[in-house]
């Protein structure tokens, strides 16, 4: 595993920790989209179907368990925790996330590397992950007073895929036959969706003011 890939994974891990820290310490999920969190739980379930059948490494298995466990616990907190769920911006978080699932599934059935159940679900998870941030970005745009932890969480989540792109470039040049168009294009789309957010993030950082996306 190269350093870029490790950095990507760690960024992803830290993003989840930041979100859980927010939920645990201030008992609030204000500004966080439950729609996006539910999509991520679905992404991990469909991608990690091979967790008990194909052993890759201890690191790989542990990370998969962490991402599965944390995504479901975040959804649980936002839906059922008696204090946390009160802070959920239900009226603002109106993105119809189910409309993202079906097109991704159809696309995965049409465009995949191999027509097997596991491979199609893997591909579906890549397509869905690429667009899963959309409800969160819409909510961010609607929220007037976004707290710092939410902004850092979204930034880290975007940075993780950007680091993965660098990892793919590195692997392409160092490993024979490493060619995965579906993964690359999905990852690129995912990162491009962050373009606007990244722009305003750096602007707010440079000017040392609170981030707010223009409506």
């Amino acid at each position: 595993m190269n350093i870029l890939r490790l950095a990507g994974d760690m960024t992803h891990l830290i993003s989840v920790i930041v979100l859980l820290l927010k939920i645990h310490s201030i008992k609030s999920c204000a500004g966080i989209s439950l729609k996006t969190q539910e999509l991520y739980a679905l992404v991990f379930v469909s991608r990690y179907l091979n967790i008990f059948t194909d052993f890759i490494s201890l690191y790989n298995t542990i990370m998969k368990l962490i991402f599965l466990g944390t995504s479901f616990s975040i959804v649980w907190y936002m839906r059922y925790h008696k204090i946390v769920r009160r802070s959920y911006d239900k009226d603002q978080d109106t993105f119809r996330h189910y409309f993202l699932v079906l097109p991704c599934l159809i696309l995965a059935l049409l465009i995949n590397e191999r027509f097997t159940f596991k491979e199609i679900m893997w591909t579906f998870s890549l397509y869905l992950e690429a667009v899963a941030i959309l409800p969160q970005l819409v909510l961010l745009q609607r929220t007037k007073n976004t707290d710092n932890l939410t902004v850092q969480y979204i930034f880290l989540l975007g940075a993780y895929r950007a680091l993965y792109i660098l990892n793919w470039i590195y692997r392409y040049f160092t490993e024979p036959d490493y060619l995965h168009w579906i993964t690359w294009i999905s990852g690129l789309v995912q990162t491009i969706l962050y373009g606007d957010f990244f722009y305003y993030y750096f602007l707010s950082w440079k000017n040392n003011v609170k981030l707010q996306l223009p409506a």
């Binding site: 994974d9 790989n60 998969k64 191999r114 596991k118 036959d177 995965h180 993964t183």
Partner: peptide
């Protein structure tokens, strides 16, 4: 064989 090389990524 089931494994393709991108399956080692998370």
């Amino acid at each position: 064989e089931e494994n393709t090389s991108h399956h080692d990524e998370l």
